[in-house]
Write a protein that binds this DNA or RNA. Structure first.
Lengths: 143, 143
DNA sequence: CTAGGTGCAAAATATTTGCACTGGT
DNA sequence: ACCAGTGCAAATATTTTGCACCTAG
């Protein structure tokens, strides 16, 4: 898999396991909260977490994008192209697939003579649940 | 215009003039480079620049989004909805309009019961010019 | 007059980096 | 043994905030 010049260290093995045992979107901070603390077994420093996330993106295991200042990661390896709906109330990301969107993108790019490397589409709004229940708390505020 | 509870200070007048005399995308840093330095006439502190940009977004004069870590601003007031192509070589943003994209967005959102507040679509790639001329330098690198 | 606005400096956030040490191969 | 990888702490980069002073209305 990463016979790409990369060494198979215990930290990387642990991080791969941790990252691919869940399928949600996450940022560096959320990931580190799930990991062992300093002094505990399998502790990984934040520098290594950041370095590793970046490597995984380069290696095609993860994709990343910016959302409200943070860098958000999601699985990429063996996972189909998709885009996102972002609920500004519960701050959850929902996925959708649309071939029409990709076609439209290709058309636009062709018109402008653009050589596409990718795209990022995020629809902002309020999800069904949060529309129903205005009292629903934000993820963050629950903590 | 901003009889919205906001005071008409000299700083704000100056910033409005400066911001709306150009039509390019910009970030806080690029804007401040164009402004008078400390000690000069019309100097505006960076705290005020950040505060003002945020107000202008709230007031509907500007729109903002994240790109490569920075917050990028563009004119919004009286300017039509559009999306962007981003050239990863010269780092320039190009605009395009597509009603089809908006329709597609509305369909997707309707399916998922989403109440839309907006969207952001950015196509990444290499623009025509940069494809032609690989030696073309990045904006940044020229400085 | 007085609440909102500004400048300054310090703080907060998120991420990167230099460096000495460690561990994979 | 050698060099990539790691932890630590310090550095960066960007944006926000506390506070004393200023000023538009």
């Amino acid at each position: 898999m990463q016979t790409r010049g990369l060494r198979q260290t215990s930290q990387r093995k642990f991080l791969v396991d941790e990252i691919f045992s869940h399928h949600e979107h996450f940022d560096a901070d959320e990931l580190m909260e799930r990991l062992p603390r300093k002094g505990e077994k399998n502790y990984v420093s934040s520098a290594t977490v950041y370095r590793t996330l970046r490597e995984f993106v380069d290696a095609g295991l993860l994709k990343s994008f910016q959302l409200e200042g943070r860098t958000v990661y999601e699985h990429d390896y063996g996972y189909p192209q998709h885009d996102h709906l972002y609920c500004t109330v519960c701050r959850e990301l929902f996925e959708f697939q649309s071939e029409a969107l990709t076609n439209l993108r290709d058309e636009v790019a062709a018109e402008q003579g653009f050589r596409i490397s990718g795209h990022r589409m995020i629809i902002h709004g309020v999800c069904r649940e949060c529309s129903k229940n205005r009292r629903k708390k934000r993820k963050q505020d629950l903590v």
